[in-house]
Design a protein around this nucleic acid. Structure first.
Length: 922
RNA sequence: AGGACUAUAGCUCAGUUGGUUAGAGCGCUACCUUGACAUGGUAGAGGUCCCCAGUUCGAAUCUGGGUAGUCCUACCA
């Protein structure tokens, strides 16, 4: 074995082996366990959030596979309608053409080509993370089978009256020329202005003043509203305004939506371009004047001078014209929330169009019930509130998108504007008995990508066919996802699945936090703080990292800032840490919080941890290879105290890890493993094995017992670690497993260790704690007195009881080796001791004679510190026990424990004070 | 505006039902190449558990109030 762990070559080697041998596919078993991967964008690439999520799913999957479940991890990708179409359009743009030049069919062909070209990136990355996905069942939302499911769902919902078509105000993206759902709009605060316009009364007797943040919309105003109880304006209600610039007259209406406190208390109403105005317009039967075209430029409904102007130009023109008329009263600075498309980044316009909707209100009812009843449980539970809050006030879901890439809506129109929903034009004709002379054209629009991903848990398993896979693996066991898509995806999956399957899509939703950078900033391309998980695995030099972060930016002016920050943060680039270290880092960060700050220091620590495991294995192999380890022999074995102790500790760790996994506390699991491997197995057990293995006089049975323990604890530990660190454990296990008598081909399919077969050996535990206490006491003196670590010390013991004597008797060789002792002398009661530095283990005094070794003042200082600490603690304990109400009212065992503690401390204090006196007198 | 979450060591975070000497990793200090590992070992320093009040014999933990930050929802033109 190499002296240090080198992850690079073993990782790809093992992954290929596992995949080629079909280990990832379901293996049978009575109980099924399944997870459906949240489908990433087929042409995208994995970011840290994905890496985190995949690691968690893989741990769950590997754990259950090892537990003998019939385990399926379903893999696949989605077609990401808007994002993918945007990318291809940009490619075309670079060639100076747009999609309309190509036409729909050619364009969609281009997108498929791009999908074929770039679709491998994400699956390659998933493999690098070690994800044990069943690649034989890979699905894509645009596959024929999944597309058929989408069509089936659309048609059935339409026939049930749960999908309808309507002319409504939607969120219109003027850059992408499509409607988007409210979830795809992000509203951020921005600096704007509030323009105050005077609107003259039609009779010429004065004016009212309205305030607006979007002056251009006045061209579409159809009323002015005041609050019904507002005495300032009550006389105006029912009168008429001469709307400037348009020549139209509009009424003054009363509506209690109006906030009397805001602005002037008078609101202009533009029902076709504002959501709340739209509602008011419907309440009052106002006309709706649409003044925009698809680009959000002014259309021909508006007065001639404004036609064709972009909305911003129109705004300037309107303001200038109003000013010229003397009707611009004032302009205030104003902070407002501007809605922008989360993909395009442009300002979204409320826009009146024909769209398709899902009646979400109706479908939400059973979906709420499923969570209320506990059929679906969120972990952590608090996310259920988020879910409920949204579901109980859900809006109808606009599912049509004016794109070419996606599932085309199965609806056909005739020339009189009637439409027919069905699986194909031919079927529609038959069903509706349409003559051949009737021309039909299919709806141009496609469905929201989330519409198809809402079917993901069952469409991937073959629905609408009733396949064996559906029967076995649906509902799935758990959904692992980020809280940011609870609305987008989780809620919609629950609604769709309950409706079509009459069962839940999953029993548990594990919601994890969002991975952020070391400063807590969201990782994004425009911030230039993105880390590719693969770069943490393979490493990347600084120059490549800088160019990766600054390439192809939407806002190139930020590049130099990003370059500077990157050079500062990663002056040496990023070292290669390997997949196992990356995964272990994710687990250690997977607590219940909402933000996960990714600190590069953590991964380095876990890379070191891998190396520790590697070297522990090296030690075990050096000592056990070609030796009798008691595996297949009948020869007797003696197990030392340390052997029994570490075996018990492993049991304890197994129980902790299992409990943590059952509770989705991957941070607890990783901590328990780290603690065991490093602080118990390596720091103590391996050291304690040396005196036995390296002692020529030790009995063969004892050596055999120790080798046996070394080997079997390591082997079991590897299995315990495997779901978290698949590669290093497989690599080591291949040798160690065979030596320990395992014949399976891979650790992946070995049983996961179960706790509780053997109890913890509490006697061995107490004895080892004693031993550690003695060793640490001596090391402490050595460390603080600056005695060379190699210097062998004589040590005296005094004042211990029979148990101390017995323990010393059994462990003298361990003590000598681990504390580097020359000899140990037991002083009988009352025997005079030389002047010495002292350590205490219970009542036992450990004395290191000072002659020539220890400086008097240094030892006095050290004792002083110890005594201070004891005195402080003691006064706290005395106060507590002197408090009558504590003694009376606290449980007896708590009082007794405090009492014991106090007595022990008093004893220790007395001993140390005596020593202090003794040394002072020198 | 409403709601949620967070506040613990220099940094990133644990702390499950109130009783711990309040922990871990990284970082820091000193010493050390000893036959698994310097990606290491040994020892050590470092905390007003955000603030105030309350409940309790006892609060990092429970309750109320405040401060700061993050996020989500909402029609303030």
């Amino acid at each position: 074995m190499e002296k240090t762990f080198q992850p690079a070559d073993i990782e790809t080697r093992w992954y290929q082996e596992w995949e080629a041998r079909g280990y990832f596919a379901p293996q049978g078993g009575e109980r099924a366990y399944s997870i459906m991967i949240p489908p990433p964008n087929v042409t995208g690439s994995l970011h840290m959030g994905h890496g985190f999520q995949e690691a968690i799913m893989d741990a769950l999957i590997r754990y259950h596979r090892m537990r003998g479940y019939n385990t399926l991890w379903q893999v696949g990708t989605d077609h990401a309608g808007i994002a993918t179409q945007m990318v291809v359009e940009r490619q075309l743009e670079a060639q100076g053409i747009n999609r309309h030049d190509l036409g729909r069919d050619k364009f969609v062909e281009k997108v498929w080509e791009w999908k074929e070209e770039s679709g491998g990136t994400i699956t390659r990355q998933l493999r690098r993370l070690g994800s044990s996905l069943d690649w034989s069942r890979e699905r894509f939302t645009m596959d024929p089978g999944l597309s058929a499911a989408v069509q089936e769902v659309f048609i059935r919902l339409y026939r049930e009256g749960l999908i309808y078509r309507g002319k409504r105000l939607v969120n219109w993206d003027p850059a992408l020329h499509t409607a988007i759902s409210d979830l795809e709009v992000v509203a951020e605060e921005e600096q704007g202005h509030l323009w105050h316009f005077q609107y003259p009364l039609a009779g010429g007797e004065g004016h009212v003043t309205v305030a607006t943040t979007r002056p251009e919309t006045m061209l579409g105003d159809t009323a002015v509203a005041v609050h019904p109880d507002d005495e300032r304006y009550s006389h105006l209600i029912g009168r008429t305004i001469a709307l400037p610039l348009t020549g139209r007259e509009i009424p003054v209406i009363a509506d209690d939506y109006v906030d009397r406190e805001f602005g002037t208390g008078v609101v202009k109403i533009t029902p076709a371009h504002d959501f709340s105005d739209y509602d008011m317009g419907r309440r009052h039967g106002l006309p709706m004047i649409n003044i925009f075209n698809d680009d959000a430029a002014i259309n021909d409904e508006a007065p001639e001078p404004y036609r064709g102007l972009d909305r911003l130009a129109a705004r300037q023109r309107v303001v200038a014209d109003m000013d010229a008329l003397g009707l611009l009263e004032k302009v205030d600075d104003h902070t407002l929330r501007v809605p922008r498309g989360d993909r395009s980044g442009v300002v979204i316009e409320p826009y009146l169009t024909d769209q398709w909707y899902v009646d979400a209100r109706e479908m939400a009812k059973p979906a709420i019930e499923a969570v209320e009843s506990g059929a679906i449980q969120f972990v952590p539970k608090q996310w259920e509130n988020t879910y409920f809050a949204w579901m109980r006030d859900i809006q109808d879901w606009c599912i049509s998108r004016q794109l070419w890439w996606g599932h085309r809506i199965p609806a056909w129109y005739d020339e009189s504007g009637n439409f027919y929903v069905g699986a194909s034009e031919a079927q529609v004709r038959v069903e509706h008995e349409l003559a051949d002379s009737v021309t039909l054209r299919q709806d141009e629009d496609v469905l929201d990508t989330w519409f198809s991903s809402a079917l993901w848990t069952f469409s991937t398993l073959g629905w609408p066919e009733e396949t064996p896979e559906l029967a076995t693996f649906h509902p799935s066991s758990v959904l692992v996802t980020g809280f940011d898509i609870i609305f987008f995806w989780v809620a919609r999956m629950i609604m769709m699945t309950l409706h079509f399957r009459k069962e839940v899509p999953f029993h548990t939703v594990y919601v994890h936090g969002l991975v952020r950078d070391g400063e807590g900033q969201k990782m994004s391309k425009s911030k230039g703080n993105v880390i590719d998980p693969i770069d943490l695995i393979d490493g990347i030099d600084l120059e490549s990292l800088v160019s990766k972060r600054t390439a192809g930016m939407m806002q190139p002016q930020l590049a130099s800032k990003i370059e500077k920050a990157t050079r500062k943060q990663f002056p040496e680039g990023i070292a290669p840490y390997g997949t196992d270290a990356l995964r272990f880092t994710y687990f250690s960060l997977a607590s219940t919080g909402r933000d996960i700050k990714f600190d590069i220091g953590r991964i380095e620590g876990y890379r070191n941890f891998c190396n520790k495991i590697w070297n522990a294995a090296r030690y075990v192999l050096m000592n056990c290879e070609n030796q009798d380890c008691g595996v297949n022999s009948e020869l007797p074995m003696d197990f030392s105290l340390a052997d029994r102790w570490i075996t018990g500790k492993l049991e304890e760790t197994t129980a902790q890890v299992t409990r943590a996994l059952e509770n989705y506390r991957f941070d607890f699991a990783s901590q328990a493993l780290y603690e065991f491997v490093w602080n118990e197995y390596c720091d103590w057990y391996l050291e304690l094995s040396k005196p036995v293995l390296w002692d020529d006089n030790a009995a063969e049975a004892a050596k055999r017992g120790t080798r046996h323990t070394l080997l079997h604890v390591l082997e079991k530990m590897l299995r315990l670690l495997h779901p978290f660190m698949p590669f290093i454990t497989e690599e080591i296990w291949q040798t160690v497993g065979a030596m320990a008598g395992k014949s399976g081909p891979t650790i992946m399919l070995e049983p996961y260790p179960q706790a509780g077969e053997k109890g913890v050996d509490s006697v061995a535990n107490a004895d080892i704690e004693w031993l550690k206490g003695v060793i640490v006491g001596i090391r402490n003196i050595r460390g603080e007195m600056n005695i060379a670590p190699g210097k062998e010390l004589p040590v005296l013991f005094r004042n211990g009881d029979q148990r101390d004597q017995a323990r010393l008797g059994h462990n003298a060789q361990f003590l000598k080796k681990l504390a580097r002792l020359a000899d140990i002398t037991w002083l009988s009661a009352g025997e005079e001791s030389p002047v010495a530095a002292t350590a205490l283990v219970g009542e036992l005094e450990i004395l290191v004679p000072m002659a020539g070794l220890i400086d008097k003042d240094a030892e006095l200082q050290r004792l002083g510190r110890e005594i201070d600490k004891l005195e402080k603690d003691l006064s706290r304990l005395k106060g507590k026990l002197g408090n009558a109400s504590f003694v009376d009212r606290a449980p007896a065992e708590v009082v007794a424990r405090e009492q014991e503690k106090m007595e022990a401390q008093q004893q220790a204090l007395a001993t140390l004070q005596e020593q202090q006196q003794h040394i002072r007198q020198l």
